[in-house]
Amino acid sequence: MNESLWYVSRATGVASIALLTAVVVLGALVSGRRRPHGEQATVVMAVHRWLSLGMVAFLLVHIATAIVETYVSIDLVSALVPFTSGYETLWVGLGTLAVDVLVAVLATSWWRHRLPERAWRVVHYSAYLLWPMALVHGLVLGTANEMPLLATTILCGVVGVGAILWRLLALPHHDRARRDAVLEQEWT
């Protein structure tokens, strides 16, 4: 039973990283010169939102099974407060920290229209920090002997890094380019 829980925890963990990677990639697509438009943009946004909910479902199972199984010592507190678990304090802590950031991202997105836009933006962009933390957490802890899990996680890493590079290196969209150009003029 315990071993099944441990296996389910690792499997749902990898699933969570896969979904998180997909969500981050879709989010990264929203900017830049080749960002989607109209109907395409609607699909990207809808999938971005829905996948994030699916990811939460897998994540909850991942965390719950990790707490309940007794093979390694991770309690509820260490699932919320980073770097407090008995087992692999640093690597589990990274995962916990990633979840804390994720909770902030989800909460600010849920209540976006009640918050200052800048606050939402800062928290939402920290998803680019949360993703590598989750990835490293998964790589170190969950994939040692399982080729499929390891391969999936590495693939997520490659795809995610690719998306982040795309985001950093993409030329600005014509809207952004024109705004920036006019902003250079005299306005004070």
């Binding site: 809207d175 024109r178 705004r179 150009a181 006019v182 902003l183 306005w187």
Partner: peptide, 11 residues
């Protein structure tokens, strides 16, 4: 002389 803030104007 567009302020460069609104698409329909700046384009």
């Amino acid at each position: 002389e567009t302020a460069g803030q609104c698409g329909p104007c700046m384009f």
